[in-house]
Amino acid sequence: MDMALKRNPSSASLVDPRLEAVLLRHEIETFNVRYANALDEQRLADWTEMFTDDATYVILSRENHDRNMPVGLIYCEGKGMIRDRAFALSETAMFAPRYLRHIIGNLDLLGDERDGTIKARANYVVLQVLFDRPDATLHQIGVYYDAFRRENGVLKLADRRCVYDNLLVPNALCLPV
């Protein structure tokens, strides 16, 4: 099922680059779907495992991003901090129960780096439902600026910067995006 394992990077010449691109796109889209599912089901430990050990994960506003200001709603340097975030949210944080839907689309592959890092971007939408309101609200809308890397052949996020357009966060952001 994991196509990446069957690929032999050293025999690139055997592979049609167009097919390669389709496979990679498929692979990342599949990754993003799983990522969304993990968050929708609030399996934060699984979500943590989708990052490399040295990964950075930051959620920041479009306003900060455009002005080169680094402040993030969530700002994690390294998997340890990502794990702490997951741990704190599931074990210590108090917030109203809710359902979330992460929808990821418009994936755009921005090319490979020499070290095997794959740059990509994708749009995302997070819908939130609180139990006492009939409507799902558009909780966040933005762009992922990503860098993927393979660890033991498995695709992982080495960097995900979630840049959101709706500058005014509705109340609180209780779960990652």
């Binding site: 506003s61 306003e63 200001m69 680094p70 402040v71 709603l73 005014l168 509705p170 109340n171």
Partner: peptide, 10 residues
């Protein structure tokens, strides 16, 4: 200045 947060609060 390192950046901003903005949020509404009901």
């Amino acid at each position: 200045v390192l950046g901003y947060y903005r949020h509404s609060l009901p």
